[in-house]
Computed example of a mutant assay.
Amino acid sequence: MRTLVINAGSSSVKIALLDGHEVVSRETVEPDDAQDALGKVLEERVDAVGHRVVHGGTRFTGPTLVDDDVLAGIEDLRAMAPLHQGPALDALRQARAALPDVAQVACFDTAFHTTMPAAAHTYAVPARWRDELRVRRYGFHGLAHEWSARRAAELLGRPLEQLRTVTAHLGSGASLCAVDRGRSVDTTMGFTPTAGLVMGTRSGDLDPSVPPYVIGEGLDAGDVATALDRKSGLQALAGSSDLRDVLARVDTGDDDATLALDVWVHRARALVAAMAAAMGGVDVLAFSGGVGEHQPRLRAAIVDGLGFLGLALDAERNAAAGVDGEVDAVIGADGHPGAVVVLEAREDLVIAGQVRDLLEDGPLQDDPG
């Protein structure tokens, strides 16, 4: 089966064509260039299309064949993930129009987190909010966290079912997940992808009284919501959403950049520890995502404060991983109870696998009559 995988993120669009498990082509483009890039790959033979969709709410808990009703259901969740749901919907509509006879499958980031216990996903808010308005912790980056936990076990040569893994997917959007023996039991993002870690333009965790306070001081409610998603995080603290720029300015002694980095690292360390606490410990910490894969300095800044969890880095291994092209590597120091790895995020392989699993007895098979 040749599966086209479309991953429309908040800052980039990843497009991959896979023939079974083999990669035919892979490309990452800016959102503005996505339509042209997608148009070119749609000229290839495609048997099925798998789409990463960030929010599935409580309705979509696994890969789902897309029809008009499903498309409307995804649209209904747009307000819960405003940076992501729109691009995914655009890609879905373009692919359906170009390939009307090809199965389109939505694969949801939230689905991996449906295994979280009630204690982890329930907010202490009024019953109507929880029951009628669907207010709960959903969690995101589930496709990436699922891959990271699985691949980390492979790198270590240990069964996934025996490992307590903290997966750290760090990019312009970022989250952590506590994967206890293959199952998500806690994560840092919540009702929307704004919660948790400090991100490129997103605030991360914030006292819930702050928005009504600043609105009461005269700010527009819509502007506040936009600011928390698009004008906060590193952008607000350092004037840049790119950690590479922040690090370069730290090295020049820039005070704003130094504070931004300190805040970013402080939150990351604290939440790694929180994820470990959800599992009663940690056997492996797995870094992925653009920042997690390619910034040894930031990996070190996080792990250097986590020795009490049995985690430590080998300086040479860490410095080499993700710098010279090779990403997947064990970078933890020998003789410590916890392992540390870095690996390439491969949501495309998870999505392609989900598409194959869903369709193997479905519309791509001959009707036996």
Rank of each mutant, 00 (worst) to 15 (best):
I6F: 04
G20C: 03
E22M: 03
R26E: 14
V41F: 02
D47G: 14
D47N: 12
A48D: 02
V54W: 01
V54E: 02
H55N: 12
T61Y: 00
P63Q: 06
V66F: 01
D69M: 10
D69P: 03
A79T: 12
H84N: 06
L89E: 09
D90P: 00
Q94N: 04
A97N: 01
P100F: 01
A103N: 12
A106S: 08
A106Y: 05
C107T: 05
P117I: 05
V125C: 10
R137P: 01
H141V: 00
H141M: 03
S148Q: 14
V166R: 02
L170A: 04
C177H: 07
A178P: 04
R183L: 13
V185F: 13
V185A: 13
T192S: 14
D207I: 07
S209M: 13
V214D: 11
V214C: 10
G222F: 06
D223V: 14
V224E: 08
G233K: 03
A238R: 03
G239M: 10
S240G: 06
S241Q: 13
D242H: 05
D242W: 10
D242F: 08
L243P: 10
L247Q: 14
R249Q: 14
D251P: 05
T258L: 10
L261N: 04
W264P: 00
H266P: 00
R269M: 04
A270N: 13
A274F: 02
A276S: 02
M279C: 01
V282Y: 06
L285Q: 00
G290E: 04
E293M: 07
Q295I: 11
G305N: 09
L309A: 08
A312S: 14
A312G: 12
A320G: 10
G322F: 05
G322M: 05
V323P: 08
D328C: 13
I331C: 13
H336K: 14
H336Y: 15
P337Q: 09
V342C: 14
A345L: 08
R346M: 11
E347I: 06
D361Y: 15
P363S: 15
Q365A: 15
D367A: 15
G369S: 13
G369V: 13
